[in-house]
Computed example of a mutant assay.
Amino acid sequence: MKILVLTGAGLSAESGLPTFRGMGGLWNGLRVEDLATSDALARNPGLVLDFYNTRRQQIAKAHPNAAHVALARPQFATKHKVIVATQNIDDLHERAGSSKVSHIHGSIFEAKCNACWRSWSASYDLDPEDTCPHCDEPAVRPNIVLFGEAPKETRMIEQAIKKADLFVAIGTSGTVHPAADWVRQAKVSGVRTLEINTAKTIVSEFFDETLRGAASEVVPRWVASMIG
């Protein structure tokens, strides 16, 4: 069976990583949404980089939870062709053992240059004075998708949806596009759909099946049932 798994902020929240809403909506007295934009980066790069440096430090201290581990089980990938796509900018899927994870919103552990657009691994704090190792321009930023920017790898994921036998959304709110539209695309393509979440979302009605509860509890049971 070909399975496409989409994971969202609710999955990483169970590892202690707060979502934007979970951060109380503010960081150092500023609205988080006002920091996560290309305009904010241009106006005050030091402030925006400090915000993401803090996020990177939080993520580095977090650990994969039971849901991450279950999705990375070798038996699961052996019995089924599993593709994992995530809206999360952390590396918890990889640390749990998943390979070839598609990061729709990029990775906090990568940097890129706003001048030449090349990217590289960067697990260190970024500073406005940092220069690009490729073009030497001081235009370094986290390699993540800011509000208003286009998500990554969407064409590949949309093609994978059409070819999948099962589309599974775990811990996603159903409010962020284009991921919020993918369950509809799956339905049009005749793909079976499953939602795993703690509560009903605005797209729950489009799923063929829903499983309610914490991902760290529900996902391991579901994976075990798929392995047989």
Rank of each mutant, 00 (worst) to 15 (best):
E137D: 09
C135R: 03
R95K: 15
I108Q: 01
A115H: 10
D90S: 10
C132Q: 06
A115G: 04
S102W: 14
K152R: 14
P138E: 08
H134V: 11
A150V: 09
V140D: 10
T131C: 14
E137I: 13
S98T: 15
H93P: 14
G106Y: 12
C135T: 08
V145D: 00
D136A: 12
F109T: 10
H93D: 05
D127W: 01
S98I: 06
P142T: 09
E137P: 03
I144V: 12
D130N: 15
W120F: 06
V101A: 00
T131I: 14
K152C: 00
L126N: 01
D125Y: 03
Q87R: 01
N143T: 00
V101N: 02
E94T: 14
R95I: 11
C113Q: 02
K112W: 08
F147Q: 12
S99N: 13
N88H: 11
F109P: 07
S121H: 11
A115M: 07
P138N: 08
K112S: 04
G148D: 13
G148K: 07
I108T: 08
K152I: 02
S99R: 15
C116E: 13
D130P: 04
H103N: 01
R141D: 06
V145T: 08
A96N: 11
R95G: 10
P142N: 04
E94G: 05
H93G: 09
E110K: 12
D127S: 15
A139G: 09
R118T: 12
D130Q: 01
A96M: 12
F109Y: 13
K112E: 09
E110N: 14
D127M: 01
Y124N: 04
P142G: 04
C135I: 11
R118A: 06
C135V: 05
P133H: 06
H134M: 05
H134K: 02
T131N: 11
S121F: 01
P138Y: 07
W120A: 15
P138A: 06
T131P: 04
H103R: 04
R141Q: 12
A150N: 14
R95E: 11
F147S: 03
E149M: 09
T86Y: 09
P138H: 00
S119K: 04
R95P: 05
A96Y: 11
D91T: 12
E149G: 09
W120C: 09
W117A: 08
I144A: 02
D91V: 14
E129F: 11
D90G: 00
I89D: 02
S123A: 10
P151T: 12
E110L: 02
D127Q: 11
S98A: 06
A115Y: 00
V140M: 07
I89C: 02
T86E: 00
G97P: 12
V101E: 02
D91Q: 10
C135Y: 03
K112F: 14
A111F: 10
A150Q: 06
R141T: 14
S121G: 15
A122Y: 12
I104C: 11
S99K: 15
D130L: 10
R95Y: 07
P128R: 03
F147Y: 15
V145G: 10
P133R: 01
G106C: 03
R118I: 01
T86M: 05
N143Q: 11
I108H: 00
E110C: 08
R118E: 15
G148H: 08
F109W: 05
S99I: 13
